[in-house]
Design a protein around this nucleic acid. Structure first.
Lengths: 188, 188
DNA sequence: CTAAAGGTATACCGATCGGTATATATTGTC
DNA sequence: GACAATATATACCGATCGGTATACCTTTAG
């Protein structure tokens, strides 16, 4: 349908702009012109800019996690391999041209209150990422899979920030080397 | 002087608002009214809002680092103790009422391009934090002090993000437990 | 006492914000 | 071929943005 396609077109373009320029710094007019769509059409599909922000975050969560999972599972065969391969998947991400940090960390920065819907959605994304790690840890036979997941998650978060704020493109490699210690410790 | 005091008053209030509500979401009018100052006065002391943003980031860097250093050095006696005490200092920070993440991570989110002056200043802050860790690591007799500093820094960054985005107030404790491994490894 | 400096309040500037209305063109369906 | 839905372009709304100008008031120093 043309309707669904228009809606996807809008949210896809909004995602690009929000990620690159920030949420408050991106106006709906700009989104419309970049998406080749009139304001009427945008507000026909979304009740408000905030609705659109939520939709972009949901899309980003879906795209990002499936991409990371695909890469991780392509780079590692066994669950244990994958607990480390996820750092390589992040490495690839950090070295992309368009890398602009984690969109959910960025959202939490602009929507700071914990009860803000965009912040809540960001926390949910992080929960799902940790859940993925927990599944891998469980499958790898880790002693305390949730603890290992939290440890690796913390390393990933640190690497993302270091890569973005300080421009350290080797952050994932350092984090991976650190992760090995905990993977070994949990899966001896 | 009344002049210096007014200027400090403005930048102090701006810091509070930028940190709590974000940079783009905070207008100069609001800063003026909260600081009890007229727009003329603000623009008498700062050339532009961006100038003010830079000034607040510089102030934040100064206040934050001195506060973390003071707390760290109060909580740990030997350099080696302090390499771990800095996680307790962060723990205290995370559990403050007004905690709203790291202002420099937030700034990097809103000013994403690596060559943006605000982003550059944020990277500089992170460099100074790592430098502090490097000094502690060196004094503690670590084998590769810069590597240990990078490791601990990465753990701190991860804890900050986890504490803010996911509201995990125990992030510092987990990070500290992880840090012990690397401190022991480097300072055996 | 006076005069300059630096403060205030307020109105204003053009631009942009998020969001709505109107009038017209394009599209798919029966 | 006609109707209904959905698109478009554009003008408009009140509010706010960053920044400037004007006019008055208060403080301090010679």
């Amino acid at each position: 349908m043309a309707t669904a396609s228009k809606k996807e077109q809008i949210v896809t373009e909004a995602l690009k702009l929000f990620y690159r320029d920030g949420f408050n710094a991106t106006g709906v007019e700009r989104i419309c012109s970049d998406a080749g769509v009139s304001k009427k059409t945008l507000y026909n599909h979304f009740n408000s800019k905030d609705d659109l922000v939520l939709a972009t975050l949901r899309l980003r969560d879906r795209l990002f996690r499936s991409r990371i999972m695909r890469d991780t599972e392509g780079l590692g065969i066994t669950p244990r391999d994958r607990l480390l391969a996820i750092f390589d998947a992040h490495d690839n991400w950090f070295n992309e041209e368009e890398f602009s940090g984690c969109m959910f960390i960025n959202a939490a920065a602009e929507f700071s209150p914990q009860d803000n819907p965009n912040h809540i959605l960001s926390a949910e994304h992080k929960r799902l990422m940790r859940e993925y790690l927990g599944g891998l840890a469980l499958a790898a036979g880790a002693k305390e899979p949730q603890r290992l997941a939290s440890q690796l998650n913390l390393l990933l978060e640190g690497a993302i920030v270091d890569a973005h704020v300080s421009g350290n493109k080797d952050a994932a490699k350092l984090a991976k080397a650190m992760a090995e210690v905990f993977v070994i410790e949990a899966c001896d």
